[in-house]
Design a binder for these strands. Structure first.
Ligand SMILES: Nc1ccn([C@H]2C[C@H](O)[C@@H](COP(=O)(O)OP(=O)(O)OP(=O)(O)O)O2)c(=O)n1
Ligand SMILES: [Mg+2]
Ligand SMILES: [Mg+2]
Length: 819
DNA sequence: ATCCTCCCCTAC
DNA sequence: TAAGGTAGGGGAGGAT
């Protein structure tokens, strides 16, 4: 350790010496080059400076447009990616290193940090048309090189789409680029020193991340608070009589929220900082460049323009004497606990909002001002921190009252004063009105609460959607019909990490997926729940984004993708979840080096009493005799930790005997139908995007989350069991989508999601619209082609609703079709 | 109509 | 340098 420090110090000294003292020039590689180094780089700015001086170049400490010829950076501020002047030559420092190694100045093209791919096309009319993208997939592939040619730095993702057109074309378009070289040089620069902080760093990344993530902390605290309330209130209901409330009293709601929560805790234990501009963040010595998030700013800091969520650098620029204090999660948890104890002491109707905040129904419990005063005193007593309380006739006004009361205050906001106070607020301050909503409203010329109130409800709904529009219509009038209630059972259990996520190979990425699946499984077990749907979310570096984000080890600009699948039986088992998640992950077909975030969630949850039983009770089916004889043995992966004994693997749809189904009790039949419908939907979906589960995958999935919807399946999948056992794996597409030669090329017309992702959103929309128009669902093709091989299999509806479809047929088929 | 998947948005 | 999570409401668009 000590040795390491000495070594670093020595290195620093050497650099300084090189910097201060004269540096001998040993070559003229960089004749005429003047660099300016932006942000953190590897090698360091000082090292780069020395390189320049040694090799005939010049180094500027400031960005003088007149003299600087190259800006050197490993990351770009997001703003620059979006708005950066096309004239800027921003180059990765590797250019300098490689040039020196090569003994000559290499062309910068492949080291450019970003590609202003479509700038030059801004004026063109039908973009899709001009690119020849409009028709079939084959043609869209053919134009890819053309697309590339317009790309300043040639993006690997676009090129990937071009792959099918032949690498030679790419080479011709870019004689100085070597196929995927750009992609690689983009995604590789993480150096060993940094790597240890990422998913590449070793076993405890996830654990370490969670223990340092404030967002993880406040999210999980919220669930913990709810759990605490559930228990405390339930206990209270069962052991004592309900709180005595004055009959007929008008409803009074409290909204209680700690003042600058994290900072309050910090100041409580650091009284000397009471009046200093304090923020809570990781970057204790963050410079004006720092992109560390500020979780919480003290009121002294807020008075100087600092707010929660701001980047450290931005704050430091405003307030150079900012005092940064570290996170103290244990303390926050303790204070939160004390706070919630006060809550349940004052009311038996409490709704948790967050670690530092809740609603209380105080109807008929006394004078609001007195209650609030007492409650605030208790909170302060027990926690050493101050809270503010807003009160009102409904939750909305209580909440708005809180913001008026802060800090360390109380305020009752009646209907009478509601619109007056509301009109004094910027739209953004209204609950439910976030960044996007403000923008949509502004675009429609609505910029204030008063203007909002002047709009017909229908207009707001047209602008914002039926629900949000109607909600806002009420909000600006101070109306809210919500009641203080604990939320019902959880609807999802998920985890996601989008910081420090870097992989060099598929194995590492898959291992990480496994790890997160384990995490979700653990939480599910803890919650005594199993999930029937697993969703995988992937963030992939945006094709235009540089390898490294502006925020240190952040995800940067990304496209997101989500894919879900059914777990049968519903599960919380780490292995089962991991298998499902990995299948989905592989189905996306992403280059591991481009992945910047991974998330896994379980939904369609149900509770398990003993943690031993799946949601679908085997007994319900078993009792129906005949089916069980035909079942496949339980699949190993589906069973989960609960042991094979209690679980059931459903037979393939095609194996069902309609007549047997018909004899099942209505409820069981409904349950089965839901399961099979779901499977069917998944097959279609997967087939549509050309996802292949286990085999080689010549084609690729669909659009990114941020893109417009893409078309669905070109195929109608028929579950007729023609291929026997491999359709046991309901996650995989049916056999006829695969490797079959029925469509010449052997690939279906799924469009590469990365390709679509590479397009600007407007162009992408056009492309997708055109794809839709010109290659209408070819459902007819497959329909006509391969289905019904053996005299026609019954449809799902026919199976489950024989009366509707063809009642007679069910009776005629007295056996399972295969298996 | 209603369900489903994938996505967006919001809040702390 | 830095720890950009998590859950719920809701909508679009396709399938049934
Ligand atoms: N972008 C954000 C917002 C909040 N928090 C954390 C830190 C806050 O202290 C805590 C509570 O959030 P609040 O919205 O209640 O804000 P504060 O309590 O900090 O201030 P206020 O007095 O406005 O409630 O959540 C965070 O980490 N990042
Ligand atoms: Mg607060
Ligand atoms: Mg709060």
């Amino acid at each position: 350790m000590e040795r390491k420090r000495r070594k670093l110090a020595a290195q620093y000294d050497a650099e300084r010496a090189a910097n201060g003292g004269g540096v001998a020039q040993v070559s003229s590689i960089f004749d005429g080059v003047t660099i300016y180094v932006n942000g953190y780089t590897t090698p360091s700015a000082m090292t780069l400076r020395r390189y320049m001086l040694q090799h005939g170049g010049r180094y500027e400490f400031q960005l003088h447009r007149s003299s600087v010829t190259h800006i050197i950076a490993t990351t770009l501020p997001d703003a620059k990616i979006k708005f950066g002047p096309a004239s800027d030559v921003i180059v990765h420092p590797q250019w300098i290193v490689d040039s020196i190694a090569a003994g000559k100045q290499l062309a910068v093209e492949r080291y450019l940090l970003f590609a202003n791919a479509y700038k030059s096309m801004a004026g063109q009319q039908s973009l899709a048309e001009s690119l020849g993208l409009a028709t079939a997939a084959g043609e869209s592939l053919a134009i890819a090189p053309e697309l590339d040619r317009r790309t300043t730095a040639g993006d690997a993702l676009t090129r990937r789409a071009a792959g099918a057109a032949g690498a030679a074309d790419v080479e011709q378009a870019h004689p100085d680029l070597d196929g995927l070289g750009m992609r690689r040089s983009k995604d590789e620069p993480i150096d060993p020193g940094l790597a240890r902080l990422t998913t590449l760093g070793g076993g405890d990344f996830v654990q370490k991340f969670y223990s340092n993530s404030r967002l993880h902390f406040i999210s999980t605290s919220r669930m913990a608070s709810q759990e605490f309330l559930r228990k405390a209130l339930a206990e209270r209901y069962s052991t004592s009589q309900p709180l005595a409330r004055e009959a007929g009293a008008r409803q009074v709601i409290f909204h209680v929220d700690m003042d600058c929560f994290f900072a309050s805790v910090a100041l409580r234990d650091r009284p000397h900082l009471a009046n200093a501009p304090v923020v809570v963040a990781h970057a204790l010595n963050g410079s004006v460049e720092s992109k560390s998030d500020i979780a919480c700013a003290s009121y002294a800091a807020r008075a100087r323009g600092i707010s929660n969520g701001m980047f450290m650098g931005a704050a430091r620029r405003k307030v150079p004497d900012l005092v940064v204090v570290p996170y103290e999660f244990d303390k926050y948890a303790a204070v939160s606990k004390a706070l919630y104890r006060v809550f349940v002491a004052f009311s038996d109707k409490v709704q948790a909002v967050s670690v530092d905040e809740a609603y209380l129904d105080m109807t008929g419990l006394g004078q609001p001002a007195e209650l609030a005063s007492e409650m605030r005193a208790q909170i302060h007593e027990l926690s050493g921190c101050t809270a503010s309380i807003g009160a009102g006739p409904n939750m909305l006004l209580a909440r708005i009252a809180t913001s008026l009361a802060k800090p360390d205050g109380f305020r009752f906001l009646s209907h009478e004063h509601a619109t007056f106070e509301i009109d004094a607020l910027p739209l953004r301050k209204l609950p439910g009105v976030g960044y996007k909503t403000v923008r949509k409203l502004a675009k429609a010329g609505i910029t204030s609460c008063a203007e909002c109130r002047a709009q017909p409800r229908a207009r707001l709904q047209a602008l914002l959607g039926g629900s949000v529009g109607a909600k806002l219509y009420d909000t600006v009038r101070g109306l809210d019909s919500g009641t203080v209630t604990l939320p019902g059972p959880r609807k999802s259990i998920g985890t996601e990490i989008s910081w420090g996520v870097r992989f060099t190979d598929a194995t590492g990425a898959e291992q990480f997926v496994r790890e997160l699946a384990g995490e979700v499984g653990r939480r599910a077990v803890e919650a005594a729940m199993v999930g029937a749907t697993l969703t995988l979310k992937i963030k992939q570096r945006h094709p235009d984004a540089p390898a490294e984000a502006s925020k240190f080890l952040g995800h940067g600009k990304v496209n997101s993708f989500s894919r879900s699948t059914t777990l049968a039986p519903p599960s919380s088992d780490a292995v089962a979840l991991a298998d499902a998640a990995l299948t989905l992950y592989r189905g996306l077909g992403f280059e591991a080096t481009t992945v910047r975030g991974v998330g896994i969630a379980l939904t369609r949850l149900s509770e398990v009493e003993s943690e031993r039983r799946p949601a679908l009770q085997p007994a319900a089916i078993d009792s129906q005799t005949t089916l069980s004889a035909e079942w496949h043995p339980p699949a190993v992966t589906g069973v989960g930790g609960r042991g094979a004994e209690g679980t059931v693997e459903l037979p393939t749809f095609s194996q069902l005997d309609p007549s047997v189904i018909a004899e099942l009790p209505a409820e069981t039949r409904r349950e089965l139908e839901i399961v099979y419908r779901r499977r069917l939907a998944e097959r279609k979906r997967d087939a549509g995007r050309g996802t292949l589960t286990q085999m080689a995958r010549p084609t690729l999935p669909s659009r990114p989350a941020s893109a417009a919807k893409t078309k669905p399946a070109p195929m109608v999948i028929v579950l007729d069991g023609a291929s026997g056992s491999d359709d046991d794996d309901f996650v995989s597409p049916p056999p006829q989508t695969r490797g079959s030669s029925d469509e010449g090329s052997g690939r279906d017309d799924g469009v590469d999601p990365e390709f679509l992702a590479a397009l600007p959103s407007q162009l992408r929309r056009e492309v997708e619209a055109d794809l839709k128009r010109t290659s209408p669902r070819k459902s007819g093709r497959c329909d006509g082609g391969r289905k019904r091989q053996r005299g026609g299999a019954p449809s799902l509806s026919q199976i489950f609703h024989p009366s509707q479809a063809e009642g007679g047929r069910a009776a005629r088929r007295r056996h399972l079709l295969s298996g």
